[in-house]
Nucleic acid binder design. Structure first.
Lengths: 190, 190
DNA sequence: TCCCAAAACAAACAGTTGTTTGGTAGGATG
DNA sequence: CATCCTACCAAACAACTGTTTGTTTTGGGA
């Protein structure tokens, strides 16, 4: 049977702090002392909860994927216009990526090979998430022989890269998603 | 007058090694000892050429931007169909980003805030480069009120993010550029 | 050939890194 | 109330980091 956790368990706080710091400064620039200090613990104490820094990253990654998928689910479930569904999915993705919880930002910001020992698991988590997007694109009414894979890679790349240039307050994720999907959908000939 | 450099100057070798390592492992994961070792020098000797690790990164960045711009120039200069010109520009960008010299990869891979003291200069170098792309997009014959800024951000994001998933041999930069531009240009209604 | 500056060596510095080890306070459980 | 194991503390470890300092080698112009 599973061992009962105690009420004063600060593990969630540790995860939150790690997510915040990883999202802000990146994986490499964040030390175990930074994380421990942020929750008032000593560095060594973290190793009661996680076997290594890389395992801690995996835990944050897992929670991150879980949250983005949860934020995406309602958008993907709604019936009606497939283009509208895609736009909402993009908006949800952007929201979690740009202004949402730190967990989501970590999944996009931190490269799997920053933690070589666990890189395959991180890649798998990313893929698991991107797969959800595939469905939204599969449902689009498109001309025959349209390269749906390229479409997914292009759209997802554009969304993810927005973390580089996005500044809060100037654009909302909603408006951004709208603009991007429009550029794809509307005919470009004048 | 400028002091004459000597023939046995290994500075270019240092830059090449730094570019290679930064592109492969990232800035943070590459130590000065790694770079020095790659050219058979001692760590301290690097400080004859560069005041700091961050300044070394700036030098690589500068060379990277110089090369990408050079690769882009012929594509932008050629007359004829603006869409074709854009496609060629994308192909040139992708080539330098995915299979070209390590310098170009560094510009995309290494985040400016990895080196806080010189971050503004790195951002300026990036902007300087992206500006070249703006012209190619400005020349496109588009419907009125098309959001050209969003188009640039979307396309450039899609291209840059390709560094994440691209595997040599499966797609060529040329083919990729063609596919991306087509997705934008061709009407999506079936 | 002489000489100087360019270019690199040799060795250390102080600080930080992830991690380990042994001990211990205190909620939960009987 | 006695016990047990969770959850942490305290302190250190060895390795590695970017950087500095003083010294030596070496190529090229006079």
């Amino acid at each position: 049977m599973a061992p009962a956790p105690r009420a004063d368990n600060r593990l969630p706080l540790v995860l939150d702090a790690a997510a915040r710091l990883f999202a802000e400064k990146g994986y490499g620039a964040t030390s175990m002392r930074d994380i421990a200090g942020a929750v008032g613990m000593l560095p060594g104490s973290l190793y009661y909860h996680f076997a290594s820094k890389e395992e801690l990253l995996v835990a944050v990654y897992e929670e991150g994927v879980r949250r983005i998928k949860a934020a995406l689910a309602p958008a993907l479930a709604q019936p009606g216009d497939p283009w509208q569904r895609l736009e909402n999915a993009c908006a949800a993705h952007l929201a979690g990526l740009l202004e949402g919880s730190d967990y989501g930002q970590v999944v996009i910001r931190v490269r799997p090979d920053d933690a070589p020992d666990v890189a395959p698991r991180l890649v798998a988590l990313r893929d698991e998430y991107e797969h959800a997007f595939s469905r939204a694109i599969h449902d689009l009414p498109l001309p025959p022989r349209t390269d749906r894979r390229a479409l997914r890679l292009m759209l997802l790349g554009a969304l993810n890269w927005s973390q580089t240039w996005y500044r809060p307050g100037k654009d909302s994720p909603q408006a951004l998603a709208r603009r991007f999907v429009r550029l794809l959908r509307d005919p470009m000939e004048p």
